[in-house]
Amino acid sequence: MTVLSDAWAYLTAGDSWTGDTGMLALLLQQLLLTVTALGLAMLVGLPVALWLGHLGRGGFLAINISNIGRAVPTFALLALLVTADFPGAQEFGPYGRAGLATLIALALFALPPIITNAYVAVREVPADVREAATGMGMTGWQRFVRVELPLALPLVVSGVRLALVQVWATATIAALVAGPGLGRVITDGFYRTNYGKGIAGAVVVALVALLLELLAATAQRLSDPARRGSSPNRDLSGEVGMSVTASSVADDAGTVGR
């Protein structure tokens, strides 16, 4: 158990946090990677998935992209990207060594939960609500913006939340290919038989992961209009039935690599 006291010593030593390769700098780098990749994935995935959901087309792809994402090891994709001629392992701005390869891998693995959830969210808007909107004379675009999007929002946000957890996990794995981020503390520790350091890094990574998840869960609660209105008759609206089926899809979508 001396490794545990080693880990504690590493965590409490000031100079393991400071400096260019200190944990604080690496933590910021990984957060930057996470935010950028998540932003990219949302920019690409959300419009496509929401619109496909509105049209009711491409469902097969939108659902199966999660299955594909689950079967491909994040480590393998990162390794292939780093070893290939492009993007390779070059430095990339503030994203560090292999920054571009890492960003691409992160964005790719963020896509499945975002796309699947956004598609299902719009698809699961009850048909009678859709019909009512059309009956009121709404055009397709109006129905999409004023009816489908607000109802779909909670599930869309839950997809983004799953993607966030996913991206943070993948960003940690980038260290296995000597990439950027906090994972480097873990791999450094293990490859140089300094297990205390490796475990210290793991503690920080795990704590930040839990913190991010907590923040995302709070954001998700705030985005749910039904909960915000705190109407006690939610059970009657059919919205609950929707969220049961949808959340099981959402759970499946979240189980991509870690």
Partner: peptide, 17 residues
């Protein structure tokens, strides 16, 4: 779900002790 949130690269080291 909490366990699931922890990245695998961090979970393995936590089990090593």
């Amino acid at each position: 779900t909490g366990v699931y949130t922890i990245p695998s690269l961090a979970l393995f080291p936590l089990l090593v002790p």
